[in-house]
Design a binder for these strands. Structure first.
Length: 316
DNA sequence: GAAGGGCCTTTGAG
DNA sequence: ACTCAAAGGCCCT
């Protein structure tokens, strides 16, 4: 166990004794930390003891769920200073009960609400989010997580001397100087060209992705679609998971399945049609609706079990 | 606008 | 062991 005080604290002037520094972030509404951090929005959280460990804005967090909130530890930033950062990241001010009430009449969505109460959207760093979802193209979770981790290990900076295991997320400038071949060598495949050109474009344009947070949805999306390697799905992921755009509705294979099976009677529908339908049907709750439908459908498995139609299996 | 081919590599079902 | 789809799409035609 860590001593009460540590002489070898890397000159940080503070202890690394987890138990003593744990702080409680109290919350009022529902939160399911595990479902939220493992719902495919973010790729840098790892299980750690009873909870998770991850980096947010270059601060290392260890978090776990408690009855009345989130117990966390942060470094190198103090818990006092990091608390609002974590609160913002977890979007704890979103009123989920109000969201649930607005759609209680939607059987499918309501079922997902009941299955995963407290599942929240995140407010990630937009550059990190953008890179992660470009890397995610036609890939799988295990591989994506590995790729992102390797990217930080290679091109990020150690967070503190005391933590040689945690890294910052590499900037556009840093990634722009790497080159496609090296990305390819590290296993990014055809995404290597996307990432290489993307970093170069963001750097050249001097693009401030955070600024898109205040833009209206169509304009913000158009700005992202102008970047090489960024299509409709990736753009909507970034808008929903990092830029607070409530109308974004990322359509991936899971969401398409969910919508086709649950709302279109199994008929094939184009992605574009799904997006338009979602805009009409969910409006400014589209991003949250997508997250719940995605989560519900993905955890259900690739194919619907024979003998039980998706509608029958979910009807109460 | 819609549709189809090609794309790197890894994962996991069979 | 080994094969072979499928994998949280995008670009180009």
């Amino acid at each position: 166990m860590a001593p009460a005080t540590s002489p070898g604290d890397g000159g940080l002037g503070r202890r690394h004794d987890a138990a003593a520094l744990m702080m409680l972030l109290k919350i009022s509404g529902p939160l399911d930390l595990a479902q939220t951090l493992a719902s495919g929005q973010a790729f840098r959280w790892r299980r750690h003891g009873q909870g998770f460990r991850g980096v947010v804005d270059n601060v290392l967090f260890t978090v776990r769920q408690a009855p009345d909130g989130v117990v966390f530890e942060s470094t190198p930033e103090s818990e006092e200073a990091a608390a609002p950062r974590l609160r913002a990241y977890l979007r704890l001010d979103d009123d989920l009960p109000a969201l649930y009430r607005r759609h209680h009449g939607d059987e499918r969505l309501a079922a997902a609400f009941r299955a995963y109460p407290g599942l929240r959207l995140l407010r990630q760093d937009p550059w990190e989010c953008l890179v992660c979802f470009v890397i995610s193209i036609y890939s799988n979770i295990v591989r994506i997580s590995g790729n992102v981790g390797e990217l930080c290990r290679r091109y990020g900076e150690p967070l503190t001397p005391a933590l040689p295991d945690a890294f910052t997320f590499p900037s556009p400038a840093r990634l722009a100087e790497v080159g496609e071949a090296e990305f390819r060598d590290m296993g990014l495949g055809f995404r290597a060209r996307f990432l290489s050109r993307l970093a170069g474009e963001v750097l050249e344009l001097g693009m401030d992705l955070s600024a898109l947070r205040g833009w209206d949805y169509p304009r913000a999306k158009a700005a992202l679609l102008g970047l090489y390697g960024v299509g409709e799905k990736v753009a909507d992921c970034v808008l929903a998971f990092s830029l607070d755009q409530p109308e974004a509705f990322p359509v991936d294979v899971w969401v398409r399945r969910a919508v086709q099976e649950w709302y279109f009677d199994g008929r094939n529908v184009t992605d574009r049609a799904v997006r338009l339908w979602a805009g009409e049907h969910f409006g400014r709750d589209a991003a949250y609706a997508q997250q719940y439908l995605f989560h519900q459908r993905r955890l259900q498995g690739r194919t619907v079990k024979a003998g039980a139609t998706p509608s029958a299996s979910l009807r109460r």
